[in-house]
Structures are given as C-alpha cells and as structure tokens.
Amino acid sequence: MSQDRLNAIASHQEILHFPKGGKPSLAPNDWQVWSGSQDEGGLPDLEHGAHKALVPFTWWLEHHHEVDIQALAKNGQIGVWFAADDDILKHADVIEVGKQAWPLVAAHFPIFRDGRSFSTAALLRDRFAWQGEIRAIGDVLIDQLLQGARVGFDSFALRPDQNLDVALKQFDLYSVTTQNSWRDKRTFIAETV
C-alpha cells in the first residue's frame, strides 16, 4: 500500500451524491481525503492515481499563499476538509476567498456520535452562502444521511462497512417534512374537515 493511501481517510469507492433539487445517486469517489500527516509536509502524489485531494483546512491555512497550491485549487485538484473542531467563523476571510478556488469542501466526522460537523455544513450554507458541494467524510453512517442532507451536505463518503444500496433508500423513508431545511420548506398538510 502506498504512503499516500496510508495517510488518507478511508471511505467507499463511490459516494452518495444528493444535489439540492435532485435525486440521490451513487457517483465515483474521485477525491482522496488526505490527513495531512505525510512526513515531508507536502501533498500526496496528484499525478499518479487519484488526481484530486481534499486537504485539511489547517494545512490550507499554512500553504494557501503558495502559487502552486493556488494553481492546483483553481485547476479543480485541491479542496479542503474541516475538522470537527475547526473554528470556521474565525477564518471567515479565508473561506470567502476559498469560495472562488475550492471545487469541493468537506466536513469530517471523527466518530459518528460527534455532530459538530453538522454545524459546519449549516454555517457554510447559511452564513457563507456556499453554493458548491459539501461532502460528509470520516465516520459517516447511514443513520446520519437524513440529518446531513437537511443541514447542507449534498454528498456523503460513507464508512467502508456501510451498505450503499441501503443508504440510497434512506431518502425515501419520509414523504412529509415538518421543519424547514437547506433543501426545502416544511410540508403543509391541508386540514380536512
């Protein structure tokens, strides 16, 4: 196994993609999620194998001024992922600039019961008006899909042991929405007398 793969966060070879206004479907997972833990501190090899990398936001903060990093981002090869404890409001200026460069952002779930990344997605959609793709990565389970889709995630890199066919069916469980969400307004049921 290559060193790049050892420094990546594991997920399925396919993602569950659920764009706003669209239907959920499976799509190839073209992005490697790099943990940022390579000894040299450099990016994983983007010329061989996976040509796109999600880098930690903390790594981006240190390296985003480098011309080659900016070029890779504008070329659609580098996006960022936010750790559950990243204070994105503290770095609003960097995120505003990043909206022009990042083709994809992700929020990491270090463990399924840590819900802080739901807040990250909601802040990106509501406060930063992020229009691009937001992916859930890390310890992402089928149980998190409905809530994730409500707060702003539109793609999910599920943990490798999760059944993708079962995951797709989660979005058909309910026909009525009782609260407004990023996707749509709540359902009003006409009273019949």
Results as ranks from 00 to 15, higher is better:
Asp143Phe: 02
Asp143Thr: 02
Asp143Cys: 04
Asp143Leu: 02
Asp143Met: 01
Gln144Trp: 08
Gln144Leu: 13
Gln144Phe: 06
Gln144His: 14
Gln144Glu: 07
Leu145Ser: 01
Leu145Arg: 01
Leu145Phe: 02
Leu145Asp: 01
Leu146Val: 14
Leu146Met: 14
Gln147Thr: 14
Gly148Val: 02
Ala149Gln: 11
Ala149Ser: 14
Ala149Trp: 09
Ala149Cys: 09
Ala149Ile: 07
Arg150Gly: 03
Arg150Lys: 13
Arg150Phe: 04
Arg150Met: 03
Val151Gly: 05
Gly152Lys: 06
Gly152Pro: 07
Gly152Ser: 07
Gly152Met: 05
Phe153Thr: 04
Phe153Arg: 08
Phe153His: 06
Phe153Asn: 06
Asp154Glu: 10
Asp154Thr: 12
Asp154Arg: 08
Asp154Pro: 08
Asp154Phe: 03
Ser155Ala: 13
Ser155Arg: 00
Phe156Asn: 03
Phe156Ala: 00
Phe156Cys: 03
Phe156Val: 01
Phe156Ile: 00
Ala157Thr: 00
Ala157His: 05
Leu158Pro: 04
Leu158His: 04
Leu158Ala: 10
Arg159Leu: 00
Arg159Gly: 00
Pro160Lys: 11
Pro160Gln: 13
Asp161Trp: 04
Asp161Ala: 14
Asp161Val: 09
Gln162Glu: 15
Gln162Lys: 12
Gln162Met: 14
Asn163Asp: 15
Leu164Gln: 09
Leu164Val: 05
Leu164His: 04
Asp165Gln: 14
Asp165Trp: 03
Asp165Glu: 15
Val166Gly: 09
Val166Thr: 15
Val166Lys: 15
Val166Ile: 15
Ala167Val: 05
Leu168Arg: 09
Leu168Ala: 09
Leu168Thr: 06
Lys169Thr: 07
Lys169Ser: 13
Gln170Arg: 15
Phe171Gly: 07
Phe171Lys: 08
Leu173Tyr: 10
Leu173Asn: 09
Tyr174Met: 12
Tyr174Gln: 12
Tyr174Pro: 01
Ser175Asp: 13
Val176Cys: 12
Thr177Phe: 09
Thr177Cys: 01
